[in-house]
Amino acid sequence: MAAAAGGSRTYSFKVVLLGEGCVGKTSLVLRYCENKFNDKHITTLQASFLTKKLNITGKRVNLAIWDTAGQERFHALGPIYYRDSNGAVLVYDITDQDSFQKVKNWVKELRKMLGNDICLCIVGNKIDLDKDRNVSVEEAESYAESVGAKHFHTSAKLNKGIEELFLDLCKRMMETAQADERLKGNGSSQSASSRRGVQIVDDEPQATPSGGCCSSG
């Protein structure tokens, strides 16, 4: 019946946003989820929780972006935020060495908790302030490589590098999900309800075909 038709899938990914207080992660994610044709881009939870619908190489992707509090006193409950995450965006301010150290701590914690299941993206924000740079490009990029993360430079202010970082992250999360699928033997376990990562949902026949690409929700 329902499952037979179409065969196209929708991926649902959870992405956590980590970073110290003033690194600009809120502006970054607001930029990304902004819809040029519609002013109602902000959900009822404003910048704390955002969703975005994408179409990547013909596959539909629903992103749920979870912002986390940067303050130390809320870190005790960090693990409950990033459990079941498919990806993490770790933001630091290129003018602030301390914020880069914080990113390193989070990477360590994420790898410890989630192993290699999670796709990491380390983001040096505020490249519009390059003259005040305190974290060298080489240091940041070699660190990212050493922990199996991708590194991006962005400017939320100038809207630079943001689309690219999320697109790359989505593609890597899709690869991970597809590899998982192959591993599981595909198909037969349609009702397997694991508590981890709600990833793949069969499309319904009556779902309206998605027009174009990159429509934000």
Binding site: S12, L45, A69, A76, Y81, S194
Partner: peptide
């Protein structure tokens, strides 16, 4: 678990974090 990835899950997680604080 289906609800835990979406807005509801985010709100519950935030609430627990606030309670712990």
């Amino acid at each position: 678990e289906g609800y835990l990835i979406g807005e509801e899950g985010y709100c519950l997680t935030s609430m627990q974090s606030a309670l712990a604080y």
